[in-house]
Simulated assay, not measured.
Amino acid sequence: MFLAKENRYEEMLYNRVGNSGLKLPAISLGLWHNFGDVDSLQNQREIIHGAFDMGITHFDLANNYGPPAGSAEINFGRILHEDLKGYRDELIISSKAGYYMWPGPYGEWGSKKNIVASCDQSLRRMNLDYVDIFYHHRPDFETPLEETAQALDLLVRQGKALYIGISNYDATRTKEIAQLFKQLGTPFIIHQPNYNMFDRWIEDGLLDVLEEEQLGAIVFSPLAQGLLTNRYLNGVPEDSRAHRSDSPFLSEDNVEKTIAIVRKLNAIAGERNQTLAEMALSWNLRQKQIASVLVGASRLTQLQDNVAALKNTLFSSDELAAIDNLLKQTRKE
């Protein structure tokens, strides 16, 4: 029987999400990879137990996480009910709909049919009555935005979600749906975009919209799929994600183009008594709109290393300037 550590909340930082009443841990656990049926259930259990023991209360899923799609929710639901059921009111559990999940015209995007069906399926897979946050996973430019907003609002009114979020929306679309949610009275509180030192697109308008609308953010891919770690400082290991030709997010070419800058960033991190990954996470959290960063983990030690970033979250103006000068060399125009 799992018993969580009594001191689990002592060292974790908790940040308010926009102007809502909800707080999230500064480090949250994403179950995109490493929690499917192809992965060890015992390892999954160790990571989830260890995360909660470190004060990580937020577990982020989506209907299509696995592989196969849906298996991450099933496995998480099993661990939740076997080990963490008594702690449900201490947990923030989120899921999403929008990417391809089942065949036919209703298995993806942003129709009311897809969103309601997806949420119902996710709740069944996790054996839950409700999720704390339900997201629309990506914008759908063929479905009226009003329909998507009304579908998400319905989930709250049906008691299937406490809060609503969106993911991968640009600044304009975020502003538009925020206005619709205001009219509906929907508890829309959060945006989940990708953000890291090499992909800073949210700084070009989205962060301003979040500030104006009093919304929070939780960012994914904060370590650029491992590029902002010590994994590639000495080349591309044969067992790495970048070495695999089927990796859609990180390639040997990415590593080669950025390795000189990564090594310089690593030197700055060393001067801060941090690893590169720790500094990269702290750098994300410097933005006041960002309540939490989502990290993945294939083993508990990785998660423990990431949480160590919270020991030093402040940057001097000189440090920020030095980092920015390096990043300007890779910033997309």
Rank of each mutant, 00 (worst) to 15 (best):
L3N: 06
R8F: 00
L13R: 09
G18C: 05
L22I: 13
L24C: 04
G30L: 09
G30M: 09
L31A: 12
F35E: 01
S40C: 10
R45K: 15
I56R: 12
F59Y: 14
Y65H: 11
P68Y: 05
G70N: 09
N75P: 06
F76E: 08
R78N: 07
L84I: 09
G86H: 07
Y87T: 06
R88Y: 02
D89R: 14
D89H: 13
E90R: 08
L91F: 01
S94A: 13
Y100I: 09
P103F: 10
Y106K: 11
W109P: 00
N114T: 08
A117M: 11
S118H: 04
R125D: 05
D129G: 13
Y130K: 14
Y130H: 14
V131S: 11
D132F: 01
F134L: 05
Y135I: 06
Y135R: 04
R138S: 06
P139K: 10
E142K: 15
E142M: 13
T143G: 03
T148N: 06
L154E: 13
L155C: 00
L155P: 00
A161Y: 01
G165A: 05
K182D: 00
L184N: 04
P187M: 01
F188M: 01
Y195N: 08
M197L: 12
D199T: 08
G205A: 10
D208P: 04
D208R: 15
L210A: 00
G216T: 02
G216F: 02
A217T: 01
I218Y: 05
P222D: 06
P222K: 12
L228P: 04
N230M: 11
P237V: 11
S247G: 10
P248L: 04
E252L: 14
E252T: 14
D253S: 14
V255E: 05
T258S: 15
I259Q: 10
R263T: 10
E271M: 15
E278V: 09
W283S: 04
N284I: 04
Q289V: 13
I290N: 07
I290G: 12
A291L: 01
S292D: 03
V293R: 01
T301S: 15
A309N: 10
L310V: 07
K311M: 11
E319V: 15
N325T: 14
K328Q: 14
R331S: 12
K332M: 11
